[in-house]
Design a protein around this nucleic acid. Structure first.
Length: 213
DNA sequence: ATACCGATTAACT
DNA sequence: GTTAATCGGTATA
């Protein structure tokens, strides 16, 4: 039976536990329609950033700057920023207005528009499980850049999320500490990174993505 | 005005 | 395993 993919309601992002949302976003689809070209991938890796109490968050201590301001906005909008001068990193703002929580998407399984993605990275996608792995690669494959910072993922038709109700067992999710946040001290060790793990879960993703075998 | 550096990646050896 | 690429955000002055 062909899966039905629908945009989640804004209430999905209003959940106050950002870690729970990061976990639930595994198996959802991130979709972009840039320049009329549709591309999508099923989310395989996320990280939670818990706002003002989280030393790893850009909003730690309640910091409000031109960059972090977006995170204080409405749940369900995109927080996209430039990292290392090269990579656009995509996050979804969660919780409520003025609570700067966000979930970083670190990995996708390429789904729709593979040919468009290959144009963007200028080479063939041979190992789908590897190609969408890494937050900079996710945005590059989907054509997401900082110009989309702040867009509403619920209302927009250029960048959004979809769900087919797929859920994973605890054993299908590998949990670890976040990457590249060594400066966060003890908070760098928090179990806020979630990765789809195991052959069973991966097979389900492939099936949902419409990829046989 | 200036200096430092990051929620990284790809191409090297 | 090592390192260049590359630039806006942020702190300090």
């Amino acid at each position: 039976m062909k899966p039905v993919w629908l945009k989640p309601a804004r209430a999905f992002f209003a959940e106050e536990d950002v870690v729970l949302i990061a976990r639930r976003m595994l198996g959802m689809k991130l979709v972009s329609k840039i320049g009329g070209k549709l591309t999508s991938g099923i989310i395989t890796e996320t990280e939670a950033y818990a706002g003002i109490t989280d030393r790893a968050s850009h909003a730690f201590g309640g910091k409000r700057t031109p960059r972090t301001e977006v995170m204080y906005g409405m749940e369900g909008i995109a927080y996209i920023y430039l990292c290392y001068g090269i990579h656009a990193l995509f996050n979804v703002v969660t919780n409520h207005t003025d609570i700067p929580h966000a979930v970083l998407v670190r990995g996708i399984f390429p789904c729709d528009g593979i040919n468009v993605m290959e144009e963007r990275i200028k080479r063939a996608i041979i190992k789908p499980l590897k190609e969408g792995n890494g937050p900079g690669r996710v945005t590059r494959l989907l054509g997401i850049d900082c110009a989309l910072n702040g867009v509403d993922l619920i209302e927009n038709d250029i960048l959004w999320l979809e769900t087919c109700g797929m859920e994973f067992e605890e054993s299908d999710i590998f949990v670890s500490h976040r990457i590249g946040v060594g400066y966060a001290g003890a908070d760098a060790l928090l179990p806020y990174r979630f990765i789809v793990n195991g052959i069973t879960a991966m097979d389900r993703i492939k099936k949902q993505a419409g990829i046989e075998k």
